[in-house]
């Protein structure tokens, strides 16, 4: 489904602070699989994830999504692919303060110009599925950590993406909530979605639902000669 060939990412190229965050990463991620990227902090997990999720472009190498080369697409096309294909769950809930949970959840669909009544219905359904429809009108400041994360998950699902990307999703959750999160991930899989998670939390990468674990160190995939 997602294919990376010799992907490199260099920050501040040409500067004294030039830094190579990814060095020739080649990778194949299967459809309807749960893949976990692990590795120490600074090993390039987030960078790799943002390239997979069409958020940034590699300095060199190719990325293919369902066979289509997307490496040098203009931003507006990448964004279009991104918002229809990927749902993002971040380390922080990254909700926008001052507006309601419902509005936060609907936010990714705004540029698509969907009919308001449809969109609202979809959002309410999503909130209902994760048992937080009671908080729909609440401001995000009033949510607990677990609720905020569930709201963020509903937001990631609003455009019905086929791939879910989660960056260190359990970093700020306690054990109980982390298990709860893995249950949700399992549900994604049964719905036919592909899931990619970065984590150095054993609770995540040792979980039984995970299909594949990829280790990353210093911008290279471990156990593979580059």
């Amino acid at each position: 489904m997602i294919e990376l060939v010799n992907v490199r990412k260099i920050f501040n190229a040409g500067n004294p602070s030039e830094f190579s965050a990814l060095n020739s990463v080649s990778l194949n991620i299967g459809e309807n699989k749960i893949t976990v990227l692990t590795g120490p902090s600074g090993s390039g997990k987030t960078t790799l994830l943002s390239i997979i999720g069409c958020m940034s472009r590699p300095s060199a190498g190719r990325v293919k999504l369902s066979g289509r080369e997307i490496t040098s697409l203009p931003e507006r096309f990448l964004t279009d692919i991104r918002r229809k294909t990927f749902g993002f769950i971040f380390q922080q809930p990254n909700l926008i303060k001052g507006i309601s949970v419902l509005e936060n959840v609907m936010l990714p669909a705004y540029p698509l110009g969907e009919k308001r009544s449809h969109l609202k219905e979809k959002a309410m359904k999503g909130l209902d599925a994760l048992n937080i429809s009671g908080k729909a009108m609440a401001k995000v400041e009033w949510l607990s950590g677990g609720e905020a994360q569930r709201a963020a998950i509903v937001r990631a699902l609003i455009n019905d993406p086929s791939i879910i990307i989660a960056d260190e999703p359990t970093a700020h959750l306690d054990t109980k909530l982390s298990y709860r999160f893995m249950e949700i991930v399992e549900k994604f899989k049964t719905e036919g979605k592909t899931v990619i998670i970065t984590s150095h939390d054993p609770l995540v990468y040792q979980s039984a639902v995970v299909d594949r674990v990829i280790g990353l160190r210093d911008g290279k995939i471990e156990g593979k000669p580059s």
Binding site: R76, R83, N94, I96, L107, P108, Y110, P111, R155
Partner: peptide, 19 residues
């Protein structure tokens, strides 16, 4: 910082530069 963060979030969840 708050505004930058907000725009960052919007772009991350699928807003485009021209949006």
């Amino acid at each position: 910082a708050g505004e930058r963060r907000e725009i960052g979030i919007l772009k991350a969840v699928g807003w485009e530069t021209s949006d």
